[in-house]
Computed example of a mutant assay.
Amino acid sequence: MDPSGPPGVPFVRGGILDGSRYGGRGQVDVMVVATSQETAEDPATVRPMRADARRNHARLVAEARAAFAAYGADASLEDVARRAGVGIGTLYRHFPNRHALLGAVFADAVSDLLARARELLDDPQPCTALVTWLRAIITHAGEYRGLSRALMSATRDDASALARCSGPMHEAGSALLARAQSAGAVRPDVSIGDLLQLTNAIALAAEETPEEPELADRLLTLTLRGLKA
């Protein structure tokens, strides 16, 4: 049975937030009441947001961006809501889980990376273009501690907001990879999914070893040597 129940019938989503991070106050039980219409994923059924809802949405994303940058992807969502001037229920109505909020925060970076991928399609050196783009991914992932781990876990959940966010990234990366493979610079059996997972793993390793600023570049170089045709 659909846990959301019949259309328009309220249901309760429960959870526990860890408020010990980002200035929180320990674990907080959260019960968020919503309607199935508000949480439906079909864009055709989503009602346009009111002006106040749009303002709340923008404030939540802005505060989440600051929190994730300062305290990592595990920053307290309760404090994000408080700093945005709304209740935790409002946050959950806009973003049903942490990955949804991370996806919204990461959207700007995705736009930048997609634009960069389009530019690099004109690079006369296909392999160099691919490496440049992968380095850009590592740089963006490093802006939010814990994002690389979240991106890696999201690939195992197609319903995740982060997984949906990664779809355009796979398409952009596939085009760059195909050029490198056609040029004979990368083995034909390499997939963009595997390559992005390796890139996220490198970003995670660099995040865990801040005392070695050259680690990411070194690991990426080693990885690409193993991918050469």
Rank of each mutant, 00 (worst) to 15 (best):
D112M: 14
D52F: 06
L215M: 12
G72L: 04
E78V: 04
V28M: 14
A141P: 00
E207S: 10
G146T: 08
D29S: 15
L219Q: 04
D112V: 13
V28A: 12
V28E: 11
G173V: 01
E212D: 15
P7V: 08
E207N: 08
S20Q: 14
G5I: 08
T223M: 09
K228W: 13
L222S: 13
P43T: 09
R65S: 08
S4H: 12
A172R: 00
A201H: 04
A161K: 00
A70H: 14
G173N: 03
G72E: 06
A107I: 09
G89S: 13
Q197K: 11
N200W: 03
A178R: 14
R156Y: 12
G103S: 11
V12E: 04
A44H: 06
Q197S: 13
A175Q: 10
E212P: 01
A206H: 03
M152Y: 12
G14A: 14
A70K: 12
G193F: 06
A34S: 15
A40P: 02
L196C: 07
P48E: 09
G72R: 03
A159D: 15
V86A: 02
G24Q: 05
E211H: 15
E171Q: 12
S20K: 12
P213S: 11
S4F: 14
G103N: 04
V61W: 01
L196W: 02
G24H: 09
E63R: 09
R59A: 03
P124T: 06
G193M: 09
A159H: 15
L113A: 01
P126R: 00
R93I: 10
G15L: 05
R149F: 04
A67G: 08
G26I: 09
A40S: 14
P124M: 15
G184Y: 13
G167F: 05
N200K: 05
A175P: 02
R13F: 03
A81L: 05
G142Q: 07
G184L: 10
R50N: 12
I88T: 06
R149L: 15
R83T: 01
L102C: 02
R21V: 08
S174K: 04
A163R: 03
I202T: 02
L224P: 02
S148F: 00
